[in-house]
Design a protein around this nucleic acid. Structure first.
Length: 774
DNA sequence: CTCTCAAAAGTCAAT
DNA sequence: CTTTTGAGAG
């Protein structure tokens, strides 16, 4: 979408200029003034544009100062984009505006107000991983397994309760205390809450819930923010949970002394609600008009992103969800290409299809960065990655095992957290013996119980190491660590974050310790730590006044989509959830199979299948020009190969919108049956052969391509320094014989471009391809 | 206390 | 099937 160059030449009416180039509904959403506005924005309908223009209007007409605007987005990336676009309209006038995610806004408020309720402003934020570690410890101490509770079960339940704004006491009040499992759960919940407080830490759910509790407990504090924020705008409103909903309500309430509530604008699309598992409640948007009486509703249906074929498919799919308001996306940009679909025998064939199509698009001039591959589960990345690597297509995994979740990064971050928040004993305990300095579990336990008995943190306890009767080696090691943390603490007051980290790395020798081991993966880990150092330098550069706390906050709240680098020049691979809010010229939705999309777990959940359909809908509507769908007729899961059936969602797309390169019914022969004897009762052949139309009337060319015997495997081979030159003939394990046409790249990155006799042109990374020269 | 090997868990999505 | 966690030996 292109941003129009709006000129503000009409001083008497700054709003007119802001609506130029907008359609009537968009203009109405920009211009409407009133206490509550709901913008129902279909996918690609230009909602970011409407929001930024609405904000610009408020500022330019002097209805609001920038500091009176609070705009809440779903990811930091979306926030950054919104700020950038608002700056494009307003220039420096965006300074002082709060444009951030729910979690970031809450952190900002909590840091400022923490002293009011027993925390300090340098509190730590526990991600799901950290809170799971803490919970596991408590789980063991309380022997919760004896009453049949699981760690995951407790974690989910606590999270759900917090999202519903219940705390231990309110829950215990209504619980059935005759049930030993309930009593144990309450005990764990209470201890978990106590530990977080002692560690001066919040988990993700607390950030929201505690802010609401803060507002309710301290009306004066709440009034301060109610008076400050006169215009509140919330994006992706369909994915808000109860705590977020309550937060918005608290902020838009009339103050004690009669200042009227702030104006509220929410933007959302109930068809894109995909976070019910995280507590998102679709009723928040469905019942908005009831919650805020007199609310204005504006519907945006014109799509500026996708071709009509893509939209028609999206509309057809989502139309199968009952209990929704009808909405019909349309585009003025023409039909475009058909959706291309492919059913491969296995996951690697599917991946090869994706890579082949990417190669073709790239050859036609589409940049890698404009293409994305989506999948339902992270486990699907393996086959995709293997094929991407050996075909030398540059790619990037977005999300998945995130940088900040790697053990070595967590180790180093634990040092920084111990410096910033000495009360955080979870962090301090993590670094006691990292790198190895002879402080083992026994020492750790002694130290922890000493700290607990004296009501101090582990960090404080280390100062008394001499009295604890440890051996000279252990005492010395502990004193050394304690001194290092003290030294880093002095540096924290003035020094940039990179200096603190550099000091820690130098004094601990952490990187050297990694490099000294025999584990070949440790070299990569050492590089990751050095990458973190580079990240802190970048942070210092971008935030001259940034503190260590600021850095830790930013690190704790990065979302998967935030990692996206638009200039990376690589294909992006991500889950369908991560894809929300993004758009690409070409989109591949992979694993469009029953049990995977919709996922098997969704069948048990109320509203599950409908949410899966919305997820598929979100995926479809990310595509601008080209959309591809693929599936594998058999897929290895849990180390077992299962026969898969094409997703029901595929059948919801009208036949005339899809062109099958190889369709599922071409597998209806003996092969499918022979495998399915051990597999699912939902035989592949049955459901697809029952169709009388479409699937069997494919052109002969497509049907002849059934290569069950020529499956793509995941074989690789170390070819050493095999030298190939244009003109050579080779034999490939999967693709047969072919002619080398070109060699690109150097050393281990050399790539052979091969024209295979049977399967056409492919690119191969020479070092690992299963090939031989003939 | 540290290393090695075997058992167990995980794989539905994420701030 | 892979990765992480635990037990026992050294």
């Amino acid at each position: 979408m292109t941003e129009l160059d709006l000129s503000f030449g009409a001083p008497n009416d700054p709003l007119t200029a802001l609506t130029e180039g907008l359609n009537p509904q968009q203009a109405e959403a920009v211009l409407y003034r009133g206490p509550a506005l709901l913008i129902v924005a279909g996918a690609g309908s230009g909602k970011t544009r409407v929001l930024t223009h609405r904000i610009a209007g408020l500022i330019r007409t002097r209805e609001a100062w920038p500091s009176q605007v609070l705009a809440i987005t779903f990811t930091n990336k979306a926030a950054a984009e919104m700020r950038e676009r608002a700056e494009g309209l307003l220039g420096q006038a965006t300074e002082g505006m709060w444009i951030s995610t729910f979690h970031s806004s809450c952190v900002r408020i909590l840091r400022r107000e923490a002293e009011n309720f027993g925390f300090t402003k340098n509190f730590t934020i526990y991600d799901s991983h950290d809170s799971r570690t803490l919970l596991k410890r408590i789980y063991k101490e309380t022997e919760a397994e004896h009453v049949g509770l699981s760690v995951a079960g407790i974690a989910n339940k606590m999270s759900r309760l917090k999202n519903e704004l219940a705390d231990v006491d309110s829950y215990a009040h209504n619980a059935n205390l005759n049930d030993p499992a309930e009593r144990k759960f309450i005990e764990v919940f209470r201890e978990y809450t106590r530990s977080l407080q002692a560690a001066n830490a919040f988990d993700f759910d607390d950030l929201l819930a505690q802010t609401v509790f803060l507002f309710r407990a301290f009306p004066g504090v709440a009034d301060h923010y109610r008076k400050k924020f006169r215009h509140i705008l919330v994006d992706e409103y369909q994915d808000t949970n109860h705590a977020q909903y309550a937060l918005i309500h608290e902020l838009t309430r009339e103050t004690e002394d009669g200042t009227p509530g702030a104006s509220l604008t929410v933007v959302g699309d109930s068809d894109q609600s995909i976070y019910a598992f995280r507590g998102a409640d679709i009723r928040n948007i469905a019942e908005f008009e009831r919650d805020f009486s007199g609310a204005k509703v504006v519907l945006l249906e014109q799509n500026y992103r996708s071709t009509q074929n893509i939209l028609s498919a999206a509309n057809a799919v989502i139309g199968n969800n009952f209990d929704r308001k009808a909405k019909n996306l349309w585009s003025a940009s023409g039909d475009g290409d058909k959706i291309m679909a492919f059913a491969g025998p296995g996951a690697h064939d599917e991946a090869q299809f994706v890579v082949d199509q990417i190669d073709a698009l790239h050859a036609q001039g589409m940049a890698y960065k404009d293409m994305a591959v989506f999948y339902r589960t992270n486990a699907q990345t393996r086959a995709l990655e293997e094929v991407f690597i050996r075909s030398a297509v540059p790619y990037r995994l977005v999300g998945g095992t995130k940088f900040y979740e790697r053990a070595e990064i967590k180790d180093v971050m634990a040092y920084l957290i111990s410096v910033a928040n000495p009360a955080d004993s979870l962090a301090t305990r993590r670094i006691l013996n990292v790198p190895k300095r002879g402080i083992g579990p026994a020492t750790e336990a002694t130290l922890q119980s000493f700290a607990t008995q004296n009501g101090i943190s582990v960090r404080e306890g280390m100062r008394s190491a001499a009295q604890l009767g440890f051996g000279p080696k252990v005492t010395g090691a502990m004193a050394g660590l304690s001194d290092l943390l003290d030294e880093a603490t002095t540096l924290m007051a003035a020094g940039p974050v990179a200096d603190i980290l550099a000091l820690i790395l130098e004094k601990t020798g952490y990187v050297d310790a990694l490099r000294a081991t025999r584990d070949p993966q440790d070299e990569a880990r050492a590089e990751n730590v050095e990458e973190l150092l580079a990240v802190t330098r970048e942070f210092d550069k971008n935030n001259p006044d940034g503190t260590l706390i600021d850095f830790l906050t930013e690190a704790a709240l990065v979302a998967a989509a935030d990692e996206l680098d638009d200039e990376s020049g690589t294909v992006s691979l991500m889950t369908l959830h991560t894809a929300k809010g993004l758009e690409y010229d070409a989109v591949f939705i992979t694993g469009v199979e029953e049990e995977l999309l919709p996922h098997r777990m969704s069948a048990m959940e109320p509203g599950g299948p409908a949410e899966e359909r919305r997820l598929f809908y979100v995926g479809i509507t990310r595509a601008r020009k080209r959309l591809f769908m693929s599936l594998a007729m058999s897929r290895a899961l849990f180390g077992q190969t299962n026969i898969s059936a094409p997703s029901r969602f595929l059948r919801e797309i009208p036949d005339e919108l899809i062109e099958w390169l190889q369709d599922p019914s071409s597998y209806s022969g003996g092969f499918g049956n022979s495998l399915s004897s051990s597999g699912s009762p939902r035989a592949v052949s049955g459901s697809w052969n029952q169709r009388s139309d479409g699937w069997n009337s494919l052109p002969p060319a497509a049907r002849e391509k059934r290569d069950w015997d020529n499956r793509v495997t995941n074989q690789i081979r170390d070819n050493g320094d095999l030298v190939l030159a244009p003109g050579d003939r080779i034999r490939h394990v999967d693709f047969g014989e072919g002619l080398v046409t070109e060699i690109t790249g150097v050393d281990s990155k050399r790539v052979a471009h091969v024209k295979f006799d049977q399967v056409g042109a492919k690119k191969l990374l020479i070092k690992i391809a299963p090939i031989e020269k003939i």
